[in-house]
Design a protein around this nucleic acid. Structure first.
Length: 414
RNA sequence: GCGGGUGUAGCUCAGUUGGUUAGAGCAUCUGGUUGUGGUCCAGAGGGUCGCGGGUUCGAGUCCCGUCACUCGCCCCA
């Protein structure tokens, strides 16, 4: 076992892992484009303040999970723990308020200083979408439809469930919070220590506690949906009706809440049973207060983020990589011809690998290892005659083909 | 930050109640003569048993510590 190890919670991705990773990203981006989303790539680090202001001083992410450090110039910066804050900051920095509605798609690494476990790394990857400047519930429906569409395309709708809830507008949320806290205070002695702490910092979180005792108390708690004001109720209903009209199935889960402070109204999550404790695969919601809270003009927004590693783990199977053609020269003089032929075939669109040395047996072994469909063999005889021996590596059949006809002959393997 | 599990060859693992030179499969390399792989056969290389200490005549095996990985709690995607 080597002494050199990657930093805790980080991984070297290669071969199949990277392919699955990319497949998730590309698929998501491809669908997002159809919905009119354009990619935005914000920096992986920001001033620490950007996250503190958006995520709230009391959230766990800010209080204990950020990679924060000081630069040589004395700036306090943080590796982004999530993507929305950066997009919101860019929206303000670039003065984009005049151009709404705006649809952004992003992808890339995120960093959280947590204890790693299944489906949870310190450097992980997300893709996400943000729709800025639309207050109507139509936006919520479209964003959820996009998420659903992506998961459908990834063939994951069978393994995931859409959970939906409304956190209401600010008025409803504050009112409900009071009702909930006074109910929970009545049971404070029976709450878990964690939840007693949450009672002060984030009482809504107690609703989705995993502690059995908490669950029993939460089950009888006053329901959020019953405390929404009329406007919030109408909004929630419009979202539900819109989803139903599109044939998107969902489950209303009153206990579904958010850890981040800027969410209101619609909250949604696609969850799975297949990943152990880290069941959330894609989550999002509406954040109408965020831009203003950061110092920009009042701008409604809604978006989601998805964990690429988690999705990649769920992925059933992806199409095999394209099989290359192996060009195998025998001898120095032949190598020159082989190099030309290789270059030509590549420019014609073929995937071609040429051995780097060794005798013919070695090169054949390599051709086999890289799963080549065919070997193009160039010995002295072939070069003299201006032909190549093409061996089908599955059947073992060999034919001589004029070098000028190679592209046509191999066309099926493009 | 808290709890459980696991660390033996490049990979996946075996290693009996502590007992000589620590094993297997896969992978790698060589050979089975010339310009033919994948199959088959023969052989080879590769391990300070995570690290440090302790118990013992003797430790991969028992004890303590430490580090790493892993699963769960917390939190989240």
């Amino acid at each position: 076992m080597s002494q050199l190890q990657p930093i805790k919670g980080t991984h070297d991705l290669m071969f199949e892992d990277v392919r699955r990773h990319r497949y998730v990203e590309e698929t998501a981006f491809e669908i997002a484009r159809r919905y009119g989303y354009g990619e935005i790539a914000t920096p992986v680090f920001e001033f620490t303040d950007v996250f503190k202001r958006t995520l709230g001083d009391t959230s766990d992410i800010v209080t204990k999970e950020m990679f924060t450090f000081e630069t040589k110039g004395g700036d306090n910066i943080t590796l982004r723990p999530e993507g929305t804050a950066g997009v919101a900051r860019a929206f303000i920095s670039e003065g984009l308020a005049q151009q709404t509605p705006l649809k952004f798609f992003y992808r890339g690494p995120m960093f959280r200083y947590e204890r790693p476990q299944k489906g949870r790394q310190r450097q992980f990857h997300q893709f996400g979408a943000e729709l800025l400047g639309v207050a109507s519930p139509q936006a919520d429906v479209e964003v959820i439809a996009l998420a659903d569409h992506i998961l459908k395309t990834l063939n994951l709708t069978g393994t995931t469930t859409l959970e939906l809830n409304s956190l209401g507008d600010v008025e409803s949320r504050l009112a409900y919070r009071d009702v909930l806290v006074s109910y929970l205070k009545g049971h404070e002695d029976k709450l878990s220590p964690d939840s007693r702490e949450r009672l002060i910092r984030n009482p809504l979180r107690i609703l989705d506690s995993k502690d059995p005792g908490d669950k029993a108390i939460a089950a009888n708690a006053p329901q959020f949906t019953a405390h929404l004001n009329t406007a919030s109720q109408d909004f929630f209903k419009a979202v539900q009706d819109g989803l139903s009209a599109l044939g998107i199935g969902f489950k209303v889960v009153p206990a579904l809440v958010r850890g981040l402070d800027y969410y209101g109204h619609t909250a949604f999550e696609f969850t799975t049973e297949a990943l152990g404790a880290q069941g959330t695969v894609l989550a999002g919601g509406r954040y109408d207060g965020l831009i203003k809270q950061m110092g920009g003009p009042q701008t409604p927004g809604i978006g989601f983020a998805a964990g690429i590693e988690r999705l990649a783990m769920l992925l059933p199977e992806i199409a095999a990589e394209k099989r290359p053609i192996a060009v195998i020269p025998i001898g120095d003089e032949e190598s020159k011809v082989a190099q030309e032929i290789t270059a030509k075939l590549r420019h014609e669109g073929f995937t071609v690998d040429m051995g780097y040395g060794g005798n013919m047996g070695k090169r054949m072994t390599r051709a086999n290892k890289i799963k080549a469909v065919a070997a193009v063999i160039l010995g002295s005889d072939e070069v003299r005659e201006g032909v190549a021996t093409v061996r089908n590596l599955d059947s073992g059949e060999q034919v001589k083909v004029a070098q000028a006809d190679l592209a046509r002959h191999l066309a099926g393997h493009k």
